[in-house]
Design a protein around this nucleic acid. Structure first.
Lengths: 231, 231
DNA sequence: TTCTCAAATTATGTCGACACTTTGGGTCTA
DNA sequence: TAGACCCAAAGTGTCGACATAATTTGAGAA
């Protein structure tokens, strides 16, 4: 048993999944705090403060911060410490250009590689989204969450581990952070829903070319929407 | 001045650029050692050994290893330590699928964003490659190196920082490692050279659509070549 | 000999301490 | 009052040490 870390109160909030090191749990907690906006954009990530708050040493905090940096959630400068990234409008646009390329490829591969069962599940997910939109109940949050879910599954369906890692481990966290911080509610959610359905049709038809085309147009439309909103 | 680290012999090989922390220099040295194949694929990255060899503490080594992990050059498992990644044939194929998507987008953006001067410089680079191929002197190494140079410049020309970071900071190091380790000499270097020229023409003509198409075909051809050689 | 299991050795995870850098505040001067 | 300078406080970079987990060694039994 470790000296005293495990009975410290600060760690109570952290999940205790087996085999996870202290740094792992710290990383999860910090990533959540950043993505959920508890630490604002540009906010300082202070090693001593976090160490105190969580009742651990600076070493563990430093390592967790290093992982956050690897995921582009914080930026670190020598002797100056780490701060939560600030996404400029330009960078957001650039990220959407990345998404267009990557998710386009993911859709192409998914059209070839997804199982019928996965496609059926995706169909069910879309049906649920449709109901939510009709009732206007889930609104922005659930719609955006649902949007990410949909894209998430397509990427998983590509069965390309590089793609999956890049998008699901890194980019999607950044996107979620951005969405929480900006509280952005898209006006084109009905349109987006329709585009999701077209895309699913192409995947069901096992048409990679069309799937990629539709996904790219879908992401591009989101980007244009964003450009207009941001200016 | 630091206690004694700076007069230790182990650090002599490390560059002393200003503002760089010990970890920075260690990271550079380790990355080079891995990419150049001095540490083989699957090789163990031992913290105590490296600390001894470079005359620094384990803390610095650990942080450098964390960065290597972020760049996908090593894999770390809790309580087991870090090992240089082993690229399976499948993963290599997956990486080329990534490249197809990313560099395709890069070419599209470069066709719009590159300056005339950059295009001229690229032209000069290609002319040089052409001479090297004629003389058959540079052979595999220089040809492959030249190939990466060409792609590198296109990516830079996209002026999309996300793309640049992803490809130039991460993926290209992985690729270089793979090439060094496999010592792979492509038989299609003349063909590749021709494809580079087509691509440059499309960029010069400011035709984004065509630039992306040509880049994707170029990368896809490399991938097919690879699949044949490996599969 | 070969297999098994426990002791010893080594490596990793985490901690606290110290040195150097940056920051913030206060003082002195023009 | 504004600005330069210095000093104290806080933060980061690096170190060595200890606790725990993994690995190796070697002794004994089948």
């Amino acid at each position: 048993m470790n000296n005293l870390a495990s009975i410290e109160s600060g760690l109570a909030e952290l999940d205790m999944r087996a085999g996870a090191t202290l740094t792992d749990r710290l990383f999860d907690a910090l990533q959540r705090a950043i993505v959920e906006g508890e630490i604002p954009q540009g906010g300082k990530i202070s090693e001593p403060e976090l160490a105190r708050r969580h009742g651990v040493s600076r070493s563990a905090v430093r390592e967790a911060i290093a992982r956050l940096e690897a995921r582009k959630l914080v930026e670190r400068k020598p002797n100056l410490g780490a701060r939560v990234v600030v996404l400029s409008a330009e960078q957001l646009i650039e990220i959407f250009q990345l998404r267009e390329a990557l998710e386009g490829m993911a859709a192409r591969l998914a059209a070839q590689a997804m199982s019928e069962a996965e496609i059926d599940a995706l169909d069910a997910l879309l049906a649920q989204h449709g109901r939510q939109i009709e009732q206007e109940q889930g609104q922005a949050y659930f719609q955006k969450q649902g949007d990410l879910d949909f894209h998430f599954r397509i990427v998983q369906g590509s069965q390309n581990r590089q793609l999956i890692g890049l998008l699901c481990d890194d980019l999607y966290h950044l996107l979620r952070m951005y969405r929480v911080q900006f509280g952005m509610r898209s006006k084109r959610c009905r349109q987006a829903f329709a585009e999701h359905q077209y895309l699913l049709s192409a995947i069901r038809a096992r048409d990679p070319e069309m799937a990629e085309l539709l996904m790219r147009q879908h992401v591009r439309a989101s980007r244009r929407n964003l450009e207009q909103a941001l200016g």
